[in-house]
């Protein structure tokens, strides 16, 4: 298909629920979810572009609750899905427990990989496969941090896990 023809085809209609809000969009098929989020129409630039090739994890968002690299998803393929970005997890005045733990444990430095780390950590907690320190490290290895905050990130996640265990035990006792 030549370029002009490809561009002349009608845009594709996509309905996405992003952070609880429905968006009806018409987009070219070559737009990735990451670029759609960060672009002029949505301006949800909390999701970061670090490599654009699935090699760093900075663009991690939750699609129907599962963590994925938004840079490798064409937005048109996600019609009807629920997307949760970092903006949907908490705000500076009302942070998600994972976000609070990241602040408390200094689990970031420059902050650029941080939204991806937080989304990934939230998913990790839900998945329930990583419990030990080693498992946390392995299951968070899809998120590179060049500032080297890894040990603090593991501390933050472990802290939230411990809190959840305590809450769970309290609830079980009640």
């Amino acid at each position: 298909m030549d370029i002009a023809t490809a561009h002349a085809q009608p845009k594709t209609r996509v309905a996405l629920t992003i952070n609880g809000h429905r968006h009806d969009l018409e987009i070219h098929p070559w737009v990735t979810l990451l670029d759609l989020l960060r672009g002029p129409s949505l301006q949800l630039s909390g999701t970061k572009k670090g490599c654009d090739h699935g090699q760093c994890g900075a663009c991690t968002v939750l699609i129907d609750g599962e963590r994925i690299n938004s840079c490798l998803k064409l937005a048109v393929t996600l019609d009807g899905t629920n997307v949760t970005t970092i903006e949907g997890l908490g705000t500076p005045d009302d942070m998600h427990p994972v976000q609070k733990a990241f602040v408390e444990h200094d689990a970031y430095q420059c902050g650029y990989c941080t939204p991806g780390q937080v989304c990934s950590a939230v998913a990790l907690l839900r998945e329930g496969h990583g419990r030990s320190r080693e498992e946390i490290r392995e299951m968070m290895s899809g998120n590179l941090c060049r500032c080297g905050a890894y040990t603090n990130i593991a501390d933050a996640i472990q802290d939230v896990m411990d809190q959840e265990v305590k809450v769970g035990m309290r609830e079980a006792a009640e």
């Binding site: 699935g54 994890g57 991690t60 599962e66 963590r67 994925i68 690299n69 490798l72 998803k73 990934s120 998913a123 990790l124 998945e127 299951m139 290895s141 899809g142 998120n143």
Partner: peptide
């Protein structure tokens, strides 16, 4: 790969 890539 990574958990994210394995999900996709």
């Amino acid at each position: 790969a990574s958990p994210q890539l394995r999900n996709a």
